[in-house]
């Protein structure tokens, strides 16, 4: 089973996770920029984080045989803090970099005017940078947030096949399917969405335009949920080509629209350093 996890926050995970992911078949990931749990208070905090996503984290993943890509954006939650808004002036510089395969996560958290403005502006940036978009749908009032999301996407003029609407469930999958956007499902260790319900959705909707991710971060989550979903698919009677389609070919097709995937062979090795620091040795000078 080869796995591309299209939404995982590796910055919050350990090297043990990287090892376990590699043994489960994970060979590539996309890490979208998001909230760190502790609110940021200025644009510089975002820029240092972006530097880490295109630099240190890509290096760290490669040490464990995993290709790391990222999506960059001002996230919906922090779009509400005017002290952070200026990061949008610098974002286009980062969207031009190698290995940046989407604008994201953008979208709604509490559906405020500030969130909507940042959302619309970043949809325009995605068009200018010729990048697909990863959209987060809110945990609260999800159906209304998803409908408003699809309205904004339609108004922006971006092609729906370049938009991934994420964190869907049984109540939001149909409107996104009808919009022509890609459908993302985050499989959590609690009740939000589990691998068995995911299999039911795949059985009902087919495999087109569907991505499955672990969305693992600093909260209770499981970076192996992609592999567990693959096994649940096999148990249900899907064959290994179906699993490969959902867990590898679909994410490659969606993010491949950036023209910037870094999927040439990567094998774990033991000697390299990033800016003088080695992961395997555990630190700096």
């Amino acid at each position: 089973m080869r796995i591309f996890d299209p939404h995982i926050h590796m910055t919050s995970r350990t090297t043990d996770d990287y090892e376990a992911m590699y043994s489960a078949g994970v060979r590539a990931v996309v890490e979208p920029a998001f909230w760190l749990g502790q609110p940021r208070t200025n644009p510089g905090s975002f820029l240092d984080y972006f530097d880490g996503l295109v630099g240190w984290e890509r290096f760290r993943a490669a040490r464990f045989g995993i290709r790391h890509h990222c999506a960059l954006a001002l996230n919906p939650k922090e779009a509400n803090d005017p002290r952070c808004a200026d990061v949008l002036d610098v974002l286009p510089r980062y969207l031009a970099k190698d290995g940046v395969v989407a604008v994201g996560e953008i979208g709604f958290d509490s559906m405020t005017a500030a969130e909507e403005e940042a959302f619309a502006r970043q949809l325009d940036m995605a068009v200018a940078a010729d990048l697909p978009v990863l959209v987060h749908t809110p945990h609260r009032d999800k159906a209304a947030g998803t409908r408003r999301t699809l309205d904004l996407v339609a108004a922006s003029g971006i092609a729906p096949e370049r938009v991934l609407v994420d964190h869907l469930n049984e109540t939001t999958v149909d409107i996104v399917a009808a919009s022509g956007c890609w459908m993302g499902f985050s499989i959590y260790p609690d009740t939000k969405m589990d691998e068995y319900r995911m299999v039911r959705i795949l059985a009902e909707h087919g495999l087109d335009r569907i991505l499955v991710n672990s969305a693992a971060d600093w909260g209770r989550s499981d970076p192996l949920k992609t592999a567990r979903t693959g096994r649940a698919m096999l148990d249900h009677g899907f064959d290994s080509d179906d699993v490969d389609r959902v867990l590898w070919r679909n994410p490659v097709e969606f993010f491949g629209q950036s023209g910037r995937l870094l999927l040439d062979d990567v094998a774990p090795d033991t000697g390299a350093t990033f800016a003088g620091n080695s992961v395997l040795r555990g630190g700096g000078e």
């Binding site: 031009a96 190698d98 940078a129």
Partner: peptide, 9 residues
């Protein structure tokens, strides 16, 4: 600002 980072690609 955006051409310099993209230049290698």
């Amino acid at each position: 600002a955006t051409r310099f980072p993209a230049a290698a690609r």
